[in-house]
Each structure stands twice: as structure tokens, then as C-alpha cells.
């Protein structure tokens, strides 16, 4: 489902909204001081998904939880000193980027793919990548298919108006295969169609496929094919033009990633503040150096961010990791030292 909601941008709409975004940016420029606005408001407006398993969802009491939500909390903790001072603004695939450029939200933590046109034409700044995803395929085991290449002539359930649709077309064209699309509107509908046998295969982000499969009554009868046909680096985004605010979001994310690399967890952080003799950890936690002042915050900003929901590894494990029903492995999202792609720039 990550994909589903991830990429659901109709191309025409992108151009339309993009031009509005440009108009909005020129109007709003020169007065962009998001940090001051957030501090004055005492609340961080965080644009999130309207509901995506593991990434953002309110529970029965209306409390938001999820992988993206924890990033909002970390930024709020760093800036305002309190992870609960977040107003979650649910945004749809159509409204998310305009909500950001019009100033309705201060940052987007809404599993959005970092692409060229979004970074440039839509005037967004991606502050980093918090989840490396990719498009995959799920088929029933009975089909006896072990590779996407064997799906020639298959019917495939695909969300309309998304980049998944374009990726699918690109991949099948490049491999000289044919397919019959079955257009669906939402992930829930896709699951329904797939279960009813309306399509041979269902394609969306691998994380979404994993969650969907885990929720089936018979997960063992469905396989996710090994091919990953697209790159979907999902990350938080901020408005173009307010670099200081962008730095804060980028380095909050980096702090969470670096904390995992250096073994700083929400459990041992107080202890490490006193006892750690690793200079990088000392700078990260504000024991030495003046890193906080350089981004307009106090020196304990990163410590609070890590305390909010833990380091990157803890957030991953709590929301989407192997201990959760969704059961995603770290894969590309492991630290660079573990063969993954997570690589926080040095805190110096």
C-alpha cells in the first residue's frame, strides 16, 4: 500500500498543482522562517497519510502511530522539546504537496517518493530518505510463477494515476512482455479484486505487498516475486527556500540514523550522556561541541529527538519490523555497516 498512496499523483494534476505551487512559492518567499513560525505556534503541523498500515494510522482513541508519525514526533521533540506537540494533518495523494507549499503543513512525513520533478519542478526539498522501497508483484502460489518475466499476458491489478502504473508499463515494455491492466482505485479495492481472482497479479510497493499479504487469511498461498521494478526512496519533504528548516528536518532524521549506528537507544541514552567517550556520540548528544546553535536549536535537540520514539532501528522495529505483523526485514534499510543504504553524514 505504501506505493499505492505513495505515487498516486495524476500526471496532469501534477503539472496543474505544480504551477500553483510555483505561484505560491513566489508569493511566500522572503518571509520563510518556518522555525520561528513553529516555535511561535508551539505546535508542529505535520502532513501525514490518511491511513497506511505501519506508516501512519490513528487507533481507536484517535492517537496517531506509525513509522512516519515517529519522525514527526522526533522533529517536534527537537524543535519544541515535546514529541506530543504535533498536529497531524491528513493529506491525500492529491493534496499533499499543495498543503506543504501553501504553508498548511511545516513538513511532510507521508511516504512520498523522492523524484527529480518533485524536487525541482514542485519546489520541494527532500530532507533525506527514511525508507527505501520499490515496486514488486504478488501472485497466488497456484499460478506457479516464480519471476515477473513469466507474467506475459497476465492481468495485473494496478492503481490508476500512480507512478506504479508508469513503472509497470516501462518494465513490461523494456522486457517485451504484454499485460492486461485491471484498474483499481485504492489498496483496499485492490486486495478485494486480487482475492476475488479478478487479476493474476497485484503490484504495488513491496512494503505494501508485505502488509497486504500478512493480512490475508492464507498468506502462505501467495508469493511476492523477487524482482523489484522501481526505486522508491521515501522521505520527509519541506518547502524549497527555507534552508534552515530543511537542515533541521534533515539532521533530525540523520540523528536517528546515526544513533542506531553508534548504539544510542532510548534506553541507554541518559547513561551515554554521562559515560560515552566516543567524541561523535558526545557531539550528537550535545555533551560537547555547539552543533545545536548552528541550526538555531539548543544543544540537546538530538537527544530529545532520539528519546521521542527511539533511534531509527527502534522506530523500524516497533512499527514495521519483523516482530510486527507486517514483518518487514531491514534489507536496503539496514545501516551501511550492515550492507544497507542508511548512511548518516558525520556529526562534526
Amino acid at each position: 500500500m505504501a506505493l499505492g498512496s505513495n505515487n498516486e499523483v495524476n500526471m496532469k494534476k501534477t503539472v496543474f498543482l505544480g504551477s500553483i505551487a510555483v505561484a505560491g512559492m513566489t508569493a511566500g518567499m522572503g518571509m520563510a522562517d518556518t522555525l520561528a513560525d513553529v516555535k511561535a505556534r508551539g505546535e508542529l503541523n505535520c502532513g501525514v497519510n490518511t491511513g497506511l498500515v505501519g506508516f501512519a494510522a490513528p487507533d481507536a482513541n484517535g492517537n496517531w502511530a506509525g513509522f512516519d508519525i515517529d519522525l514527526c514526533k522526533a522533529v517536534a521533540a527537537a524543535v519544541l522539546g515535546d514529541p506530543s506537540k504535533v498536529k497531524y494533518v491528513p493529506t491525500t495523494g492529491q493534496t499533499r504537496f499543495t498543503a506543504l507549499s501553501s504553508g498548511e503543513v511545516d513538513m511532510l512525513a507521508r511516504n512520498s517518493t523522492w523524484t527529480f520533478s518533485r524536487d525541482t519542478d514542485l519546489k520541494l526539498d527532500f530532507a533525506g530518505v527514511n525508507y527505501y522501497d520499490g515496486q514488486g508483484f504478488m501472485v497466488p502460489k497456484d499460478l506457479g510463477v516464480t519471476s515477473v518475466k513469466e507474467l506475459d499476458g497476465a492481468t495485473i491489478c494496478i492503481q490508476t494515476g500512480t507512478t506504479t502504473e508508469l513503472n509497470l508499463a516501462d518494465y513490461f515494455k523494456a522486457n517485451d512482455l504484454s499485460y492486461q491492466p485491471v484498474n483499481i482505485d485504492s489498496n483496499a479495492e485492490g486486495e478485494q479484486q486480487y482475492m476475488a481472482g479478478a487479476c493474476d497479479a497485484y503490484t504495488t510497493d513491496i512494503s505494501g505487498l508485505a502488509a497486504t499479504r500478512a493480512a490475508f487469511a492464507d498468506p502462505e498461498n501467495h508469493v511476492i516475486l523477487p524482482e523489484v521494478v522501481s526505486k522508491e526512496p521515501l522521505g520527509p519533504a519541506v518547502r524549497h527556500g527555507d534552508n534552515n528548516w530543511g537542515d533541521i528536518v534533515r539532521w533530525t532524521l540523520n540523528a536517528l540514523i546515526a544513533a542506531e549506528e553508534y548504539g544510542v537507544t532510548s534506553k541507554n541514552i541518559e547513561e551515554l550522556v554521562k559515560s560515552s567517550d566516543n567524541p561523535e556520540v558526545q557531539r550528537l548528544l550535545g555533551v560537547s561541541g555547539e552543533l545545536g546553535a548552528m541550526i538555531g536549536l539548543d544543544n540537546e535537540w538530538a537527544k530529545r529527538a532520539i528519546q521521542a520514539s527511539g533511534n531509527y532501528g527502534e522506530i523500524f522495529a516497533a512499527n514495521i519490523g519483523e516482530q510486527t505483523p507486517i514483518g518487514l526485514t531491514r534489507g536496503l534499510n539496514a545501516q551501511w555497516t550492515q550492507g544497507g543504504l542508511l548512511y548518516a553524514q558525520p556529526f562534526r
Binding site: 490518511t50 498500515v53 500478512a214
Partner: peptide, 16 residues
């Protein structure tokens, strides 16, 4: 709107 986020909770994912 409500159904989407109810389904986004893993306990109820797959309810249609």
C-alpha cells in the same frame, strides 16, 4: 475517510 484509516490499523486490514 474513516474506513481508510481503520483499515490502516493492521488489526483491521483486509476488512472491506
Amino acid at each position: 475517510g474513516i474506513s481508510d484509516f481503520v483499515r490502516a490499523n493492521f488489526a483491521w486490514k483486509g476488512i472491506y
